[in-house]
C-alpha cells in the first residue's frame, strides 16, 4: 500500500494551490492543466482517474473557487463519452465552457425520470439546479426522444431558452432553465450519466475536504488570537476538545474520500457503494465542521464580511449536491444487502 499521491499529482495540486491564491482565472486554470486532468488520455486529456479529481477539487474547495470546473468534468465528460473530441479539445483548452442541465423539479436527488422531451430537433421542458449554467457556452441537456432518455447540446443563447439564475449556497450560480422548443443537437444516449455523476460526486466530496481544511485553519487561527477573559479562547478546554473532534472527523472524511477515489473505476455496484459511503460520511462531517467552526468563532462567524461564512455555506451545501446523507444511506443499504 502507498497512501502518497504521485509526483505529477502533487505538483499539479501545489501549483494549483499557488495560482488560486494569486486569483487564477479560467485561462490560467486551463493553462495549468486543471481541465486536462479531468479527462483520460483516450479522451484527449492526461488524467481522469479518481485521484486526479480528488487532488484538483480539494484545492478548489480549499480556495473557495467558483470556477465551473465540476461542470467541465461532468458535462464535458458526457461530451467525451459521445466521442466529440472536437469539443473536448476546446473544453480542455479553456475555450468552451459547458454545463449540465439534467435535474428536474420533482426528481429531488434521483437521476430520473426525465420529462423534458425532444420533438423534431427541438427541446421543451424545465430543468432545475443547473450549476454555473449562467455564462456557459453550451449546455448538455437530457430529454426523452422516441421513448428514451438521451442527451442533447443546446446553445443557452438560442431562442426558447430562459435561465432564471440566483447565487448558489455553495458559491457560483444555480439556474432554473425553461426550454420552449429550443433547437437541440443530438449528442448521444445517457448510458454514462451514472458514471459521470459518480465522478462529480467525488469532486464534491473532495471540494468539501478542501473547504473543511480551510474552516479548520481559520478556526485554529482564531482560537489562538481571539482573547476573552484575558486568554486566547483556544486555552479553554471546552473548545480544545471540540477542535480535536473536528480534526478527527476531517481525517475520517479524507479517508472516505480516498476509499472512493480508489474505486471510481470499479464496476458500478462497487463504485456506487463507495460513492454512497463517502458522500454520506462527508455530508455529515461537512455540516459538523461548518457548525463547529461557526460556534467556536462566536458572533464574528455569523457575518457576511468574515470569510468563514462563504466556507460554511459551501460546507452546508455539500449535503444538497448529488444526494444527501439519507439518500446515500438508503442506497448504501441496498447495495450492501
Amino acid at each position: 500500500m502507498d497512501f502518497n499521491h504521485t509526483e505529477e499529482r502533487r505538483m499539479l495540486a501545489d501549483s494549483l494551490r499557488r495560482s488560486l491564491e494569486r486569483g487564477a482565472d479560467w485561462a490560467a486554470l486551463a493553462e495549468l492543466g486543471v481541465l486536462g486532468a479531468l479527462f483520460t488520455e483516450d479522451e484527449g486529456g492526461f488524467g481522469g482517474q479518481g485521484f486526479d479529481i480528488a487532488v484538483i477539487f480539494e484545492e478548489l474547495g480549499r480556495a473557495g473557487s467558483d470556477a465551473p470546473v465540476l461542470e467541465a468534468g461532468l458535462a464535458g465528460g458526457l461530451i467525451a463519452d459521445a466521442g466529440r473530441a472536437d469539443l473536448v479539445e476546446r473544453i480542455i483548452g479553456g475555450d468552451l465552457k459547458v454545463a449540465l442541465a439534467h435535474a428536474e423539479p420533482g426528481m429531488r436527488y434521483d437521476l430520473g425520470p426525465v420529462s423534458a422531451s425532444v420533438h423534431d430537433g427541438h427541446l421543451s421542458g424545465r430543468k432545475s439546479f443547473a450549476t454555473n449554467a449562467e455564462g456557459a457556452d453550451l449546455l448538455v441537456v437530457s430529454a426523452v426522444a422516441q421513448g428514451k432518455t438521451a442527451l442533447f447540446l443546446v446553445d443557452p443563447k438560442a431562442q426558447g431558452v430562459t435561465l432564471h439564475t440566483t447565487p448558489a449556497l455553495m458559491g457560483g450560480t444555480i439556474s432554473e432553465i425553461t426550454f420552449d422548443r429550443a433547437p437541440a443537437e443530438p449528442l448521444g444516449d445517457a448510458g454514462t450519466l451514472e458514471a459521470r455523476v459518480a465522478a462529480a460526486t467525488l469532486a464534491v466530496c473532495a471540494d468539501a475536504l478542501g473547504a473543511m481544511e480551510t474552516a479548520k485553519a481559520m478556526t485554529l487561527d482564531y482560537l489562538r488570537t481571539r482573547k476573552q477573559f484575558g486568554v486566547p479562547i483556544g486555552k479553554f478546554q471546552a473548545l480544545q476538545h471540540r477542535m480535536a473532534d473536528v480534526a478527527i472527523e476531517i481525517e475520517m472524511a479524507r479517508s472516505a474520500l480516498i476509499n472512493l477515489a480508489g474505486h471510481l473505476s470499479a464496476p458500478a455496484p462497487t463504485r456506487d457503494r463507495h460513492v454512497s459511503a463517502a458522500k454520506n460520511l462527508i455530508g455529515r462531517v461537512a455540516r459538523l465542521v461548518a457548525e463547529e467552526a461557526i460556534q467556536m468563532h462566536g458572533g464574528i462567524a455569523m457575518t457576511e464580511e468574515y470569510a468563514l461564512s462563504d466556507v460554511a455555506r459551501r460546507l452546508v451545501a455539500v449535503d444538497h449536491r448529488f444526494g444527501d446523507e439519507d439518500w446515500h444511506l438508503a442506497r448504501f443499504m441496498k447495495l450492501s444487502a
Binding site: 440566483t166 449556497l169 444538497h320 449536491r321 444527501d324
Partner: peptide, 11 residues
C-alpha cells in the same frame, strides 16, 4: 434537509 436541492438557490 427536507427541501432537498431547493436549499441550493440562495437569495
Amino acid at each position: 434537509r427536507a427541501v432537498g436541492p431547493w436549499a441550493m438557490p440562495f437569495v
